[in-house]
Every structure is written in structure tokens, then in C-alpha cells.
Simulated scan of single mutants.
Amino acid sequence: MSSHLIDLFKPFIPKLVNSLHKGQAGRIAVLGGSKEYTGAPYFSAITAMRMGSDICHIFATTEGGTATALKTMDPDLIVHPIEKNDPSDIIPWLLSLHCIVIGPGLGRTVGAWNCAKEVMKAARNINLPMVLDGDILRLLCVNKGLDIIQGYDKVILTPNVVEYNQLSNAIKEITGDSSASLLTPQQISTQLGNVTIVQKGQTDHITDGNQTVSCDEPGMPRRCGGQGDFLAGAVAAMYTWANLYYKYNLNESPKDQAYPLELLSSYAACTFLRRCSSAAFSKHKRSTITKDILKQIPNQFELLFPDEDSQ
């Protein structure tokens, strides 16, 4: 199945032709970062850009110098300093985006949560695709946060083990399930109205409640932080490409696909991360860090998605 799913995704990748203008290969944003965590939003945004997205924004708080620190990391990224977690500094930008990643390094303060909540509501109101990762998944599990995404088919959740457990417990509390067992990804997706879940683990399980695919591509045993942020950025880039493909090819419909775009994009991103991680580990072994994984993007992208037109 793995090669088949990758083959189904390949047509979505924008061709590198001189007639393209800036933005046609994706305008991505990341809402995240806090005084404790600046690396997470950087890794998500730079992954999307290194994969070939044209424009990548980061919306980050000014608290603790977070936005200033992010501005020094890479001039290719557009960093917006957000004063006092004010969502009105972010919402006007949403109309210019193709996808927004919310959560990497966001922190768990009331201000960060309230800001993210208003941005999620605004994004849903304009049908903007979202990838939710990291701290936002924990915050969704309190104060009826799950209501914000209930039934929204353009949202992809990428929980790690801890975040997945919290999602399961939150939904069991809502449904009155007192059992000790974890809900399956399919059960969580169904209860949330068929949103897409990427349950990260030794094997990644991806489901919209109706269909499920699994990625067991070899990754690496080194569990350095930042791999989840890489994945969130990769999912955003690939999901954007899938949506743009049908925007520019009006004679085709995503309904013709055997799998939803969310599943295909997430599967391709999971496979790509694992390929990059494996290649980085083969070179750096125990000392592998996320910056090493980022360096593998060019070669591994060409290996996984060879440009047949240039051969």
C-alpha cells in the first residue's frame, strides 16, 4: 500500500516551471512559540519552506523576546510579533493563507489559549485548512475546546502519545465512558465528526473515521525533540499542495480519489519525515538532532518524489 499511496500523492506536487508566481506553491503560517519554546514554530515553518512552500509566516508572542528570537533564526521566514496575545493581529492575515499550523511551542497560558481559540474560530469561518499540533491539542481538551473543531473536515490533528491519551480521556468524559481503555483513532475521529487524526508512534495511524492508513516506514530510534514540529510543517505543505491542485485543475475533483486528501497528505508527510530521520541517523547516530533531519530534505524529497519530467 505504501508505494501506492505515495504514487497517488505525487501529482499534487507543484511542478517547478518558470510560469509560476510567488504563492502558487503555498502560503503557510504557524501560530506558536512562547518564552520557553522558540524552536518548535521555527522547525514547522522552515520544514514547509524547505520542502518548497513559497511563503511561510510565524505568528509569535513578544513575551520573553520570543518573536525577536525567531526573527534571528532565518530571514526567509516572515515573523509577526504579537503583542499581548491579541488575535486581531493575526486574523486579518488568514485570508491570504492556504493553511495554518497552530500549536508548536505555543505554551499553556490563558492568553495563548484564548488567542489560538479565536484564530481557530476565524479560520474555520473562512474554511481555511488547519494542522493542530503540540500544546493546542492539550488545550482543546479543556473548557469545551473540542467544540471548535467538531465536524470540521479541513482540520488535521497530529497528537503524540501524551496528547493522544488526553484526547481519548476528554472524549470519554464527554460520552460518559468510564472504561480504562484508550479509544482507537477511528473512535476519536468519529466522535469529533470525522476530523483527521494522525496518531504518531512506532507506527503512525491516520484516519478520518471512515478510512484508515498506517505508515510503518523505518524511522530512527533517536527521539530528539522537533520531529513532531517537522511533521506538522510537512503535513501543512502537502495538504496545501493537494488543495491547490484541485483549485488549478477544475476539470478534476477530489471526490475521484480513493482516499481523502487529508489522509494522502498526512501519509506522505509521515513517510517523508521517516525517510529524512532515517537518513540523518545513518550519518549522525546518537548525536542526531532536528537540524540534521532538516538537512536531509533536499535529497530525500527527490528520492521519494523524483521529478520524472527532468529525467
Score class of each variant (00 low, 15 high):
M238S: 09
S282C: 09
D256H: 06
L97W: 02
S168W: 10
S282L: 14
S189I: 03
T38C: 12
T196W: 09
D307H: 14
E163G: 09
T62A: 03
R27T: 05
S266C: 09
V235I: 15
Y152K: 06
S88K: 04
L139G: 07
L183I: 09
T175Y: 10
L192N: 10
Y259H: 15
D292G: 13
G134P: 00
T196Y: 03
A269N: 03
I293R: 08
N18G: 11
S53L: 01
I46S: 09
F43Q: 05
M130R: 01
D76C: 12
T61M: 02
P129R: 11
P254F: 08
P104Y: 06
N210Q: 13
P14F: 10
I188M: 13
S179W: 07
A170L: 04
V142K: 06
Y245F: 15
G228I: 11
N125A: 15
R223T: 08
I6F: 10
R286I: 06
A268E: 12
E163R: 00
L94E: 01
F9E: 13
I58S: 02
K144L: 11
D74M: 04
R138V: 04
Q257R: 15
A40W: 07
K144A: 15
F9L: 11
T61N: 08
L182G: 02
R222L: 11
N165H: 15
I126Y: 10
N125G: 01
S179E: 07
L16A: 14
C99R: 02
E63A: 06
R27H: 13
A69D: 03
G107F: 00
D135K: 00
I6P: 01
H4S: 15
M49E: 01
T109P: 11
M220N: 13
D86L: 00
D216T: 12
A60L: 04
